[in-house]
Amino acid sequence: MSWIIARRRRPVAGYAVVLLGLIAVGVVYAAFTTQGSPASASSPAASSRETAVGRQLFVQNCSSCHGLLAQGTNTGPSLIGVGAAAVDFQVSTGRMPLKEIEAQAQRKPPVLNTAQTHAIAAYISSLGGGPAIPGASQVSTQGADTGLGQQLFTSNCAQCHNFVGAGGALTQGKYAPALTASTPTQIYEAMLTGPEAMPVFNDTTITPSEKRDMIAYVTETRSAPNPGGFSLGRVGPVTEGLVGWIGGIGALVLSALWITAKRRVHE
């Protein structure tokens, strides 16, 4: 502490404070823009053998929270009737198995491979139906109407996920995740099952064809150019303001310090 007090009036102290501020902003920004790796999934062919394998895997990986019969416990909800799509979404995005109980499960590299995921999905599906994992043709964006997809996305998704799917904050530590790493299958499953705080968009409200349009919009937007320069995460005015105020005004403050600093007198 006394080290700082002794040096706080030095000419470099001002620069040091501004520099520290800039570094802090950079670190915080980097922490918010980390992404998980994409996972893949394809449609399963449920068989009794697969179901048995799935039950085995479920007991090993999931039952401590969801109960031995997937009936739910104090720490995890019942999985009866949630469907294969919900299991595939949660496990293929790495959200389940959960590492620790927090406001919201986070996307991370999946613990189980595709075959194991589909086996658990088949087991949960055998307990009580629910939406199935969409097939490859259901999530293909071939010939999709990206324009309609954008309209639907803007009306129903953009409030939480941002207009280009960059994500956004919700209440009490929850957040709408960025859609930058989501596979078409995962986006479809999320709409179908409404994971965590997300509302459900079932196939009779937003038809499978309209879901494909929305997926096409989300995936095409990722490769859109940024003619204005840096995208800054494409989250809009928040990062732009942050960079403008901290970066721009920080640079102006530094320049002002330099221009007006008293010249050192050499005696």
Binding site: L148, Q151, L152, S155, N156, G194, P199, V200, F201, N202, T204, T205, I206, T207, E210
Partner: peptide, 22 residues
Amino acid sequence: VISDTGRPIRPADFGSPGGMIT
């Protein structure tokens, strides 16, 4: 009607609890 697609809605079509639509 559902915004952007203009489709009218039957209560049964909108039958998943937790669903929301504009």
